[in-house]
Amino acid sequence: MSDLKIEGYEFKPGYRGMAEDTGSAQTMFKGVHWGKAMMWIFLLSDTFIFSCFLISYMKGRGSTPVEWPNPSEVFALHVGGVDVPLLLIAIMTFVLITSSGTMALAVKYGYEKNRKMCGWLILATAIGGLTFVGMQAFEWSKLIHEGVRPWENPFGAKQFGSFFFMITGFHGTHVSIGVIFLFIYAYKTFAGHYDERKRGWFTSIKGDYVEIEILGLYWHFVDLVWVFIFAFFYLW
């Protein structure tokens, strides 16, 4: 890491150097913006929340005496006379992953101070997120229509409904919050708040394109969590 250079700091070689860098004065993560560091730690904490949910799900699924429903039947979509398993969910996942891509591009254009491109890409990300939430609402209403409830489930163990609605709901809330922030940030980008370093409405911290990257971290995390939820609910 000795060739790494951050303004005002030269990294030292070897493990010993690494330890020294870590423990050195002022900052532990050299050149890392406070907000970014904060988001990383917040996401670590959030990871624990989702882990608790998923571990509880495993335990709940393992200890319930009633049969667990077969996901490829429960989640199948009836298209043109045939049941296609996991169709909707495949589309949802695709949309969400794509939105991660547009988010990454938005960050790039943000740092290039390309206000227009950045703004449009954030907007595209937001729309991707919105589509995801919409499809999830569709999935929920389909299941509810079939009689699945948090407290009961015609296809087997009641915990299926409980965990499904709780965990996807919790994740959906994350996506929705992300979408709201994306819209706000899109507005702020178009309005030039980051170029002009205008102060935040509440925090009175000077605006900076790094904020978009911070939101991007959150967005990628939400996508990543979805992959796990997807695997646990739909593939297991």
């Binding site: 870590t22 423990g23 050195s24 004065a25 002022q26 900052t27 532990m28 993560f29 890392v32 406070w34 560091a37």
Partner: peptide, 12 residues
């Protein structure tokens, strides 16, 4: 982690 003053290493 990120806002210590100059000279304030972790071990200080």
């Amino acid at each position: 982690l990120q806002a210590r003053t100059r000279g304030m290493t972790l071990m200080r």
